[in-house]
Amino acid sequence: MTTLDTAPSIDIPSLSTDEIEHLLVTPTRVVRSEWMKMRTLRSTWLTMALALVSVPGIGIAIAWSTANDWTKMRPRERLHFNPLADPLSGFNLAQLAFGVLGVLLTAGEYSAGMIRATFAAVPKRLPVLWAKLGVFTSITLVTMVPLSIFTFFVSQRLLSAQHIQITWDTPSVARSVIGVGLYLTVAAALAIGLGAIIRNVAGAIGAFVGIILVLPVIASALPQTWGDRINKWLPSNAGQALMSVTSDNTTLSPWRGFGVFCLWAIAALVAAAVLLRRRDA
């Protein structure tokens, strides 16, 4: 071992005692770390751009083309047009984008192996889940509520050329519009939970799409007596009750439906939290 003793010594940078005293893991720091994780990946920006553009983009396109073609449209088609819901239908695409992003935030770390570095840094683990949830749902909420309102006003402005607009003061309209942002926020939370449970990006995206889009299609094939009882409780059907102006016995009332959707997301998150603590990383 003589070669080692004569080896050039390596100058290892060390921290000052003052710095060391402050190396505690705090919730704020974990949130900051998760926020940095999110914005330092290109996939985040691409998916986020898709999510942000989809609601106003599709909304304005629908309102503009409808206003343009209105005079040429057949009466049946005119009757079918919903000036509130149709311009907001971009949320269908946005929910997929947020679903994919939520899954990437959790399951993506497992696929990459990054989760081991993360849990070595935050061995209590749960703060990581709550930080991801907090960062992602906050971003969804603060972007999508204003964007939904923006989309509503721009599209109504376009529709007003044909006097087929609906006003903000109309009962249930404000709730429906803001409901788009709220619905997407809870969908984002659901995706975070599913990603953490399934820990595989492809599998979790499959589960998210299955629950949000496929389940209602399958359930609609049930005989009506069964379907009417079951369909309204499914996550996306319940959540979208918040965005509908009319309600009947096949749907839940808006806030009740939204509450049910929240419970689905909470169930997924609780399962994720339990598994996160219990399973080997």
């Binding site: 710095e19 190396l23 720091r29 940095m36 192996g113 990054m114 989760i115 070595a120 840094a121």
Partner: peptide, 30 residues
């Protein structure tokens, strides 16, 4: 150091370290 690939391939080396450093307030200088 548990395995070479406990990283996300899409992140830069510096960002990878910054993300971990942030969990306990380690500076960018470090």
């Amino acid at each position: 150091l548990l395995e070479a690939k406990a990283v996300h391939n899409g992140r830069t080396a510096r960002n990878h370290l910054l993300v971990l450093a942030a969990t306990c307030g380690i500076s960018a200088r470090r």
